[in-house]
Simulated assay, not measured.
Amino acid sequence: MGSISISINDLLNFSGEELVAVGLSFRVALWCAILTLPPSVMIAWWLARKNFKGKSIAEGFFNLPLVLPPVATGFILLLLLGKNGFIGKYLNEWFGIKLAFSFYAAIIASIVVSFPLAIRAIRLSIEMIDPAYEEAAKTLGANSLQTFFRITLPLALPGIVSGFVLAFARSLGEFGATIIFAGNISGETQTIPLALFNEIQIPGHETSAFRLLLVAVVFSFAAMSFSEFLVKKLHHHQ
């Protein structure tokens, strides 16, 4: 890639395909964060508060997407949920559901790679809560469910917010698992990283690639800054 000369007008002159990729990335990331949060909270609480045989194996399983190459994660999803996959073939035969190479596949791929980050952030927050608060609530007549919702969740809120934003931000940057399981279909699964990859491959499209790069950086930076702001505000009010 040669030297790049880009004006302000170039930076603002988004093409229709670029805008579609930006909008699609935002939708995928938002759905990923929303769907990741509830199971992440439950699993984080389970790992933080329970001791059981095989706990290290469970921790390793939930953290596996952190160390697996994203392409390998995508291939595993394809083997499981593809049209002829172990689970996917039954979804297709019984319900007519085809997940691979669809908008839903992009969300699933993002959820899988984001899941460990959300769990870790929420688990750390729960582990920092003194169990004495929960025990005090139970001695005052609250059952386990009431204690969880009235004591644990409010005190763990900064970590929950961090987990939500981490899942959102990780989804914005997801590439490897998505391109294998969801494909690179313009208007359906082509998120910012995939569109950026396309533009880098085409000579003369450096300006388009730079626009997409700038959007990715701004989105990610804004998400993390907003997370830090909210966490500090929540800590201040606790």
Rank of each mutant, 00 (worst) to 15 (best):
G74N: 02
S56D: 13
S110V: 08
F14P: 07
S220T: 15
A21G: 04
N84D: 12
L80D: 04
F226L: 15
H236S: 15
L212Q: 01
W46K: 06
E18N: 05
I4G: 09
L91R: 05
R27H: 10
N13P: 06
L230P: 03
L30R: 02
T191K: 03
N143A: 07
F26N: 01
K53E: 12
Y133V: 03
I122N: 00
A182M: 08
N84E: 13
S220N: 13
P69W: 05
N198S: 14
A209W: 03
L19S: 13
Q190E: 15
L155P: 01
E18R: 01
I43G: 02
A156E: 08
E174W: 07
I126P: 00
Q201K: 14
T147I: 08
H236I: 11
L166V: 09
I180R: 00
G187Y: 13
G54W: 10
K138M: 14
I192P: 02
V41E: 04
L194D: 04
H237W: 12
Q201Y: 11
S15A: 12
L155A: 10
I160R: 00
G85K: 03
A48N: 05
G54V: 10
A222V: 15
S102W: 07
P131W: 11
G183Y: 05
S144M: 07
T191N: 04
A195I: 02
M224W: 03
P38M: 13
Q190F: 06
P38D: 12
L37N: 05
G141I: 08
T178P: 02
A106R: 02
L78H: 00
G16F: 13
Y104V: 05
E59P: 04
D10G: 06
M128I: 10
F95A: 14
I107N: 07
E93K: 13
L213W: 02
M128D: 15
G54N: 08
G204I: 10
A29P: 07
E188A: 12
L11T: 10
S125T: 11
F14N: 09
A121P: 00
N9Y: 11
K233D: 14
V112F: 08
I107L: 07
I6Y: 09
L81D: 00
A33I: 09
I97A: 11
